[in-house]
């Protein structure tokens, strides 16, 4: 059989390509084109404003900070949990997978409410911790609060993604290692992690993008009080006072470029490591 599909076969891809054009290319092109329009004239003004404004600069820094921290925490704990679940029976694994599934999808208002009940100014946990003298005061409506909230779904998502990746490492490898005197920690550092390195980089990139794009949870928990990028975009699009959709378009493009960096870097890293 030929590797080149006949013209008729290529036509079968048309609906998919059409959908891709309608749902990805067209909106992206509109956003890109509009981002160069300021006050009705073509200019780089929107980009100049993003680059010079300390306010928008800070929103990028905050988003990057929250994303980097929660991605690191998510990957670390996700990996440890996935490794320990390897040694558990099917029942425990299924329960853990179900919980992770709920966690990964419970973002937005429900997550924010749950955190407010627990860690809000009069939250159960806040009161208990205050009463026990462990903390003086705690404000969940802050950058720290956002990091805690993001971790909730970042760790859960990492567990969901890492478990099947680790299934690719045969238990025989671990047994072979234990018989030649290599302990569990050393096995995972020298064999386990390197073997799944590519997938781990991909998962890290995905978690990072997931955090950068988080909006509902942020809005529900801290409203507009913490300066992150997605809140700024939404404010410019739907705000009554500061509405400037084209500036929002430019920020969205900038966000897209920022997300492109880890993707390109990870691809380059993996290219050098072709096994």
């Amino acid at each position: 059989m030929s590797h080149h599909a006949s013209p008729a076969m290529k036509l079968l891809a048309a609906p998919f390509l059409l959908m891709l054009a309608a749902l990805v290319v067209w909106p992206l092109a509109t956003v890109l084109i509009d981002s160069f329009s300021k006050g009705g004239v073509w200019s780089l003004g929107n980009y100049a404003e993003i680059l010079t404004s300390a306010y928008y600069g800070q929103s990028f820094v905050n988003s990057l900070l929250i994303s980097a921290v929660t991605t690191a925490i998510g990957v670390l704990f996700g990996f440890l949990i996935a490794v320990s679940l390897r040694y558990r029976s099917g029942g425990t694994r299924r329960i853990a997978m179900a919980l992770a599934n709920i966690g990964a999808n419970l973002a937005g208002v429900p997550l924010a409410m749950a955190l407010i009940f627990l860690l809000g100014l009069n939250g159960t946990l806040t009161i208990v911790l205050k009463a026990s003298g462990l903390i003086g005061s705690f404000n969940v409506y802050s950058l720290t609060g956002l990091i805690i909230a993001y971790c909730y779904f970042q760790i859960a998502l990492a567990v969901l993604l890492i478990i099947p990746v680790l299934d690719g490492i045969e238990t025989e490898l671990e047994e072979a290692a234990s018989l030649i005197g290599v302990g569990t920690t050393r096995f995972w550092l020298r064999v386990g992690l390197p073997v799944v390195g590519r997938q781990m980089v991909a998962i890290t990139t995905l978690l990072f993008a997931n955090a950068m794009g988080t909006y509902a949870t942020t809005l529900a928990l801290t409203g507009t009080s913490v300066n992150v990028i997605t809140i700024r975009i939404s404010e410019l699009v739907s705000g009554d006072v500061f509405s400037d959709p084209n500036l929002a378009n430019a920020i969205a493009i900038a966000l897209f470029l920022v997300l492109l960096v880890p993707i390109v870097v990870s691809q380059l890293l993996l290219k050098g490591d072709k096994r």
């Binding site: 047994e175 018989l179 064999v191």
Partner: peptide
């Protein structure tokens, strides 16, 4: 004790 497995169990990254 040394052991040889049916499916080799070599460390693929080494």
């Amino acid at each position: 004790i040394g052991m040889v497995f049916q499916h080799y169990a070599l460390f693929p990254n080494m």
